[in-house]
Design a binder for these strands. Structure first.
Lengths: 188, 188
DNA sequence: CCACGACTACTCATATTTGAGCAGTCGTGT
DNA sequence: ACACGACTGCTCAAATATGAGTAGTCGTGG
């Protein structure tokens, strides 16, 4: 429902003050952003233009640093702060599971060879384990200016990955049965 | 990365044979679809048109049942089956956490009153608990034609919600500290 | 010196999603 | 009879996302 790009832009401008596009992007990246946002250039600049057109942010000035490309600095407006609060409230209210494509893929995998499927799952487990390790490190070596909110976000990621790992284990255990099941269907 | 709508349409047509748009939608709904897909009419029909234009599916015929609106029945093509396999493989490979807007909202909530935030979180816990109960029921009273894959998907949902609940508990516990933290910043 | 990869900022065409809406049918109650 | 809400199928404009590309700068190794 709520548009994360808008929330991100408004939130960042409100929190850190006026910024230009690339700065927003980098700020997000440094802030372990893969966790809560995934703003690619296209959607970011699109959002900036639209937000400016709506008056939720405004272009303050255009700078040029040496000969690098010119950049436009935006600031949030009063109207924008109001919208920010509304968006945030909306985001805090929607508590549901976002559909995971892997479920869809699994539901469509009746015909897939068990060995191959098992291979994919093993790979997934490896990837997830690596990520879990990264987030555990997060918890220990705190950032310079790591806030409690940042901790919570990292912890959220860790817990979610643990759940994924547990589920993957369960899938691997039941994989034999899944194969039987699709055989039941092909030979009635 | 992978487009879930495409995967859904191709997969459903491959699995259940030729169907028209509304039928796809309903089939998904009956199949506890809120779990792995959330195809609204707009994106579904858009995808159907595009897939047909690309030759991955083809319009078989146009039926009319009584005086109800006419419907176009689509079938997957050979080309489409190839694409389906590719999409499925891609979906099975991407094992990462999809960003959750609540993290974003939390990161932007330094200025939010603790009581209000706590209220939102309590509501979320209520919602999540209700959903967890629904999925537990899923596990017990099996569907008529519930496959192992369906079970796994439901179990996935349950585990994910458990993780969410655990995290919410953790957030509520640390909420006091979060408030302190933002005070540190406003009065240096 | 120069090629090369990485960074800086942003643009643009195309793909996709959203959300409302349309035009009719059906069943149920009153 | 008839109002009402729910269902049937699908369309459409507007919002948003994607992914590649542009044009130049900078640092580094050979």
């Amino acid at each position: 429902m709520v548009n994360p790009t808008r929330l991100f832009v408004l939130g960042a401008l409100a929190k850190r003050g006026p910024m230009y596009g690339h700065q927003l992007r980098r700020g997000a990246r440094l802030d372990r952003a893969e966790l809560w946002s995934d703003v690619r250039p296209g959607s970011l600049y699109g959002a900036l233009h639209r937000l400016a057109a709506e008056g939720l942010i405004e272009a303050l000035r255009t700078e040029q640093d040496g000969r690098l490309p010119a950049r436009t600095v935006y600031a949030i407006t009063g109207e924008g702060r109001r919208e920010l609060k509304a968006l945030r409230a909306e985001a805090l209210q929607e508590a549901g599971l976002r559909p995971d494509p892997v479920d869809l893929a699994l539901a469509m995998s009746g015909d897939l060879d068990e060995g191959i499927l098992r291979g994919y799952l093993d790979d997934r487990v490896r990837l997830l384990t690596a990520q879990a390790a990264r987030f555990a490190r997060h918890r220990d070596r705190a950032w310079p200016d790591q806030t409690v909110a940042d901790d919570l976000v990292a912890e959220h990621a860790r817990l979610r990955i643990e759940a994924e790992l547990a589920w993957h284990q369960l899938v691997l255990d039941r994989l034999g049965k899944l194969a039987d099941d699709s055989e039941d269907r092909t030979r009635p």
